[in-house]
Computed example of a mutant assay.
Amino acid sequence: MANEVNDLFLLIESKRNDFTSVEQVIADYFIAKRKILSISNLAKEIVVSAPSITRFCKKLGLNNYKELIFLYSLSLRDQTVDASMISTPVTASYHALATRSDASYRSQAVTNFCDLIHSTQIILFWGLGFNSFAGQDFTFKFSRFGKFIQVYSDQHSILLSAASAGKDNLILISSLSAKDSNILKAIQLGKENGAQFLLITANEDSPFIDYCEETIYAASFSPDEALGSVSPQVPILIQLDIIYSKYVNLHKNSVDKWLLSENILKN
């Protein structure tokens, strides 16, 4: 083999940032330690082409699929029973989501998010269903910086908040699909009233994007992940943690307010 790394899992992770979206799907299959298939059957199983799998092998520094399977078999054999219990498809999915989040990271977009949050005192958080849990996390983090945050988690209250929103309001929308027609109407109404919008979504074709000052793209779920093995708010929470970390770095003066709130809570 051309590559000196003898652990396929380590080899895959070392190349993660260089993979295309199709190659990420192939990588996830092996990281999840799924069964060994022929190249044609694997192509059918994960809905990619056989040449894509061959290109994936080449990107790993292997000559062909046969070498990949040989290295995969060795790597599986070297795993202890305890290790195989830990590295389940669920933990592999979490790792894959984190890697896809890193691949979609745009520093300027996150900076723009932070600057708008910093310059606005009143922030409305719109999130249906599981997104409301992400809203609570956002509230916990940023209320410490003196922000007044209100979470709206149903279409009726979102529409009402849009009707009363104004130029002093920043509205952060959390939605992986970002295509709900009622939310779109609320966005259009809020925009007419002068509100500014931020969006976190996995849908790069969302009709919401045109109305937002900035958009951050969360990792999208694979078909297996979408079945419920991973909590649906995880991709959003990853992005909120990225925003929070960047905010603290950019606006260090606000940390004083955070420290004050910490002292109040301790007392």
Results as ranks from 00 to 15, higher is better:
3 N>F: 06
3 N>A: 07
6 N>K: 14
6 N>F: 10
7 D>H: 04
8 L>M: 08
11 L>S: 07
17 N>L: 12
18 D>I: 08
23 E>G: 04
28 D>R: 14
33 K>T: 09
35 K>P: 09
40 S>K: 11
40 S>C: 04
44 K>N: 11
46 I>V: 08
47 V>C: 07
51 P>V: 01
52 S>K: 04
53 I>K: 03
57 C>G: 03
59 K>I: 04
60 L>V: 00
62 L>N: 10
62 L>I: 09
71 L>K: 13
75 S>A: 05
79 Q>K: 07
79 Q>W: 02
87 S>N: 11
88 T>G: 07
96 A>G: 01
98 A>F: 14
102 D>C: 04
102 D>T: 06
105 Y>N: 12
109 A>I: 03
110 V>C: 07
116 L>A: 04
116 L>F: 06
118 H>E: 14
122 I>K: 15
126 W>A: 02
127 G>V: 14
131 N>G: 14
136 Q>A: 03
137 D>V: 08
137 D>A: 07
139 T>M: 11
140 F>I: 10
141 K>F: 05
146 G>K: 04
147 K>E: 03
148 F>S: 08
149 I>Y: 05
153 S>R: 08
156 H>W: 01
157 S>E: 15
158 I>P: 05
159 L>R: 05
161 S>L: 00
162 A>Y: 02
169 N>R: 10
170 L>P: 12
176 L>A: 08
180 D>T: 13
182 N>A: 13
182 N>S: 14
183 I>Q: 09
183 I>R: 03
184 L>D: 05
187 I>T: 05
189 L>N: 05
191 K>A: 13
191 K>M: 03
196 Q>K: 15
200 I>P: 11
203 N>M: 12
207 P>Q: 10
209 I>W: 01
211 Y>C: 03
211 Y>V: 00
214 E>W: 02
219 A>D: 07
221 F>N: 04
226 A>K: 08
226 A>D: 02
228 G>A: 02
232 P>H: 13
236 I>Q: 15
239 Q>F: 01
244 Y>W: 14
244 Y>K: 11
245 S>E: 14
246 K>W: 03
247 Y>F: 15
253 N>K: 15
255 V>K: 06
256 D>C: 00
257 K>W: 01
263 N>G: 01
